[in-house]
Design a protein around this nucleic acid. Structure first.
Length: 506
DNA sequence: AGCACA
């Protein structure tokens, strides 16, 4: 048949032009998107086929028009720069076929392996551990492999079965990784999820890019040995600031003025506030809130982070640990306040009726154990509404006019009920039933372990934050609902709450 | 680095 029978005719002869281009030496698990990215400058790509060949590192792209394929081949034939994908040289030639035939049901044949594209981040912004935490909420994650593409970051996440994978896909596709799992500089990490064609990933090492959670004895790649400890990130790669008894607060969407009194009120709910300083920086309003101890600060930070001081999503708090340990407040004024007793008679004692009380649902945390001096009102029984009644105590840290402004009464919250009941996170009147279309914001992830079961029907309550103190009288949450679920602010529907069932320690 | 899919 073959007229010019040669040992390797396809290598020696230039292929006749075809709309289909054969690509080889592709990076691992090259995606259709990457192929399109490579080819689209030359024309309209009408079909692709990825991961073919013995090493699954070959692919085909089919242009709408033959001339477009010719343009691509011609360009790279004379270009000084070879075609590249993820830094790898990609070799192109006309395919020996005239069209791609594939029965690809592009995307959604269920698989136990998910292909996850994390939009808007650099590789390295999202650690494999963060991904593991996110996806573990749906079931045991067998393996994860991550890889970079030119403009983005992808991961293959392998579950035991496609049902679990489907659940995860449905819940997470289009959503973003919660901010608190990420470094500050990282932008929104939207997840795009499809089913992979893989069924079992071949993970050879535990490394910063691949993990096999089914095999603890898998050798650890040397490159992954010393990742933790850098940049203040913990072993799991998540944010781990050095803790402090002083909290630095910044405020997003600051539609209302925030005074020291307001901050005092909010932060006193977690323990004795010793000092507050507020100031403007380039970034805007900032405040430092000093507690007697790290533990109290941690409780306040974890409880308040992402929550809004005012309803309607106004004045959303973002809290980090300050590098300070003791604020130097020289004069008490509207910029700084020292409540420790040196300065003001009225502020000389525990100013709040809120004594040390365990935070409901914080799992045995005793945040006030280390308060260095006994708050005088520790024994006062919780009384709904009492603590924030301006007339109830000797100290009224909140100007009357502020009270109106501060806690917008939201139907379910009776006047006089203090900030314990204020609907903190979220944007709206969260005490009522969820507006249509709001519920996806609070799609509860199914719990994987014993710690946190699925919370069906968990609607707007998740946005309620139960502050310690008197709130137990007016519980807005079903008993037993973990406060952990309340700590995840939603951000315009972008984020999702997660049960905080970390399979391994932080 | 070298041509899939049924």
């Amino acid at each position: 048949m073959m007229a010019s029978a040669s040992s390797q005719p396809q290598f020696r002869n230039t292929q006749p032009p075809s709309k289909v281009i054969h690509l080889r030496n592709l990076p691992w698990e090259c995606t259709e998107e990457e192929l399109i990215e490579l080819g689209k400058p030359f024309g309209k790509i009408v079909n692709t086929k990825c991961n073919v060949g013995a090493n699954r590192n070959q692919a085909f792209i089919e242009f709408a028009d033959l001339n477009q394929a010719i343009a691509m081949i011609s360009y790279y034939a004379s270009s000084a720069e070879p075609a590249q994908l993820r830094g790898k040289t990609v070799y192109l030639q006309y395919s020996n076929r005239q069209e791609i035939v594939n029965n690809k049901t592009t995307g959604d044949v269920p698989s136990n392996v998910l292909l996850v594209t994390i939009e808007g981040v650099e590789a390295g912004d999202v650690s494999i551990d963060v991904l593991h935490v996110v996806f573990s909420a749906f079931g045991f994650v067998n393996k994860i492999a991550t890889f970079e593409k030119t403009a983005g970051f992808q991961a293959l996440v392998q579950f035991s079965d496609s049902e679990t994978a489907s659940t995860a896909k449905n819940a997470l596709d289009g959503r973003s990784i919660p901010r608190y799992l990420l470094q500050e500089h990282v932008g929104p990490c939207t997840l795009r999820i499809t089913f992979s064609a893989h069924t079992d990933l071949n993970v050879k090492f535990q490394s910063h890019r691949s993990r096999d959670y089914t095999n603890p004895f898998l050798p650890v790649a040397p490159s992954a040995m010393d990742v933790s400890g850098q940049l203040g990130f913990g072993q799991d790669g998540m944010k781990q600031e050095p803790e402090s008894n002083v909290i630095l607060a910044t405020v997003e969407n600051m539609q209302y003025a925030i005074t020291i009194d307001v901050l005092y009120m909010v932060f006193s709910a977690f323990g004795t506030v010793q000092k507050i300083a507020i100031f403007e920086k380039n970034a805007g309003f900032q405040a430092l809130i000093q507690y007697p101890d790290i533990r109290t600060a941690r409780t306040a930070k974890e409880s308040l982070e992402g929550h809004c001081i005012y309803g309607g999503g106004f004045c959303k708090l973002h809290l980090t640990y300050s590098h300070h340990t003791n604020l130097n407040v020289k004069i008490n004024n509207d910029r700084g306040r020292d409540y420790t007793g040196g300065n003001t008679a009225t502020m000389s004692n525990q100013p709040s009726i809120l004594g040390p009380q365990p935070i409901p649902g914080l799992g045995g945390t005793a945040p006030y154990n280390s308060v260095p001096y006994p708050p005088p009102n520790a024994m006062i029984e919780p009384q709904p509404g009492a603590s924030w009644d301006t007339g109830a105590g000797t100290v009224s840290p909140l100007p009357a006019q502020l009270q109106n402004q501060m806690y917008m009464h939201q139907g379910a919250m009776p006047p006089g009920v203090g900030p314990q009941m204020m609907p903190l996170p979220g944007q709206g009147s969260q005490l009522g039933p969820p507006p249509p279309g709001m519920s996806p914001q609070v799609v509860p992830l199914p719990g994987q372990g014993s710690q946190q079961g699925t919370m069906p029907g968990m609607g707007p309550q998740t946005r309620m934050m139960q502050l310690p103190g008197q709130g137990s009288q007016q519980r807005a949450m079903p008993p037993g609902m973990s406060t952990q679920m309340m700590q995840f602010p939603d951000q315009g529907g972008q984020q999702f709450p997660m049960p905080f069932s970390l399979p391994y320690g932080r």
